[in-house]
Amino acid sequence: MPRKQRPWFPGAIYHITCRGNRKTPIFYDREDYLYYQYLLKKTNRRHPFNLHAYCLMPNHTHLLLETTVSPPGEAMGYLNTQYAKYINRKYDLVGHVFQGRYGASLIDSMMYLIDVSRYIHQNPVAALMVLNAEDYEWSSYSHYIAAGLDPGVKVKTEYILSQFPAPKQENYKSFIEGAEYGDIVRRAPVL
């Protein structure tokens, strides 16, 4: 039986998740996280997309990905295959690294988009790995709160930040830390 085809069109934005097989780790050390980030950049050159947010957790990943010219399956197939080869080779393992096909939820509204960005950036806090989202090294949160920062993976922050009043980065940080979006917009000065 063929897989159910996922909806796709240029400009579609997805919350993509990939979990380790049997919920086992997919990152074992710093080098693994760095290699995944390298592969993310390489994948983007081969199968272009806009990355709006990401978080690499020990046993799963989150990507907030906007397609441009090809469906997300092309990029994810390449990324997951290359990373699985790396892990199996490095740790002398065999078999699946990822649990089944990647998950993809189509983002259908701006509010859903910014809520997913909060969910992604708060994931390490919810997992009790850090006290503050900004303390987690393996996410795109630093791209949002530190102007001009480019630690390697290109993240397109402008689209989500454009939904927040000035000062955009401070208001986004307040939102990530728990402020309600409506409260942030209401307290913005009228220009």
Rank of each mutant, 00 (worst) to 15 (best):
I26H: 04
F98N: 04
R45N: 13
T81P: 09
G11A: 02
D150I: 11
A133Q: 00
M129W: 08
L64I: 10
P189E: 15
S109L: 09
N171Q: 12
I16D: 00
D108E: 15
L79V: 06
P25W: 08
E137L: 14
L93V: 10
F98G: 00
Y86S: 07
Y119W: 07
E177P: 03
F175W: 08
T67E: 02
Y144C: 03
S70C: 12
W8F: 11
H47P: 07
D135I: 01
P167C: 01
K168D: 07
L39P: 01
P165A: 07
Q122N: 13
N21E: 11
L191N: 14
G148K: 02
H47L: 09
V155L: 02
D29C: 11
S117I: 06
D115Q: 13
N44H: 13
P58K: 11
T68G: 02
R19E: 09
L131F: 13
I13D: 05
K41N: 15
D92C: 15
S105C: 15
H47I: 11
Y136C: 03
K154I: 12
Y181A: 03
K90M: 01
L106K: 00
Y33C: 11
L39F: 05
G182P: 09
A104S: 09
T81R: 12
S174K: 15
S105V: 15
K154L: 13
Y102V: 10
S140N: 00
I160C: 05
S140M: 08
R6T: 10
G95W: 05
L113R: 06
R3Y: 04
V97S: 00
G182V: 10
Q122F: 08
Q5D: 12
L40S: 04
L79C: 08
H62G: 05
P189I: 13
N88E: 00
H143F: 02
V97G: 01
R19P: 05
L51A: 01
Y159D: 14
T61H: 10
P124L: 02
G11F: 01
Y172Q: 07
R187N: 11
M129N: 06
Y78R: 02
Q37G: 01
L161H: 00
N88C: 09
D32S: 01
K156W: 14
L106F: 00
Y83V: 08
R22A: 15
I87A: 07
G11L: 00
E137Q: 14
A104R: 01
A75D: 04
V125C: 03
K90G: 04
H143E: 07
W138R: 02
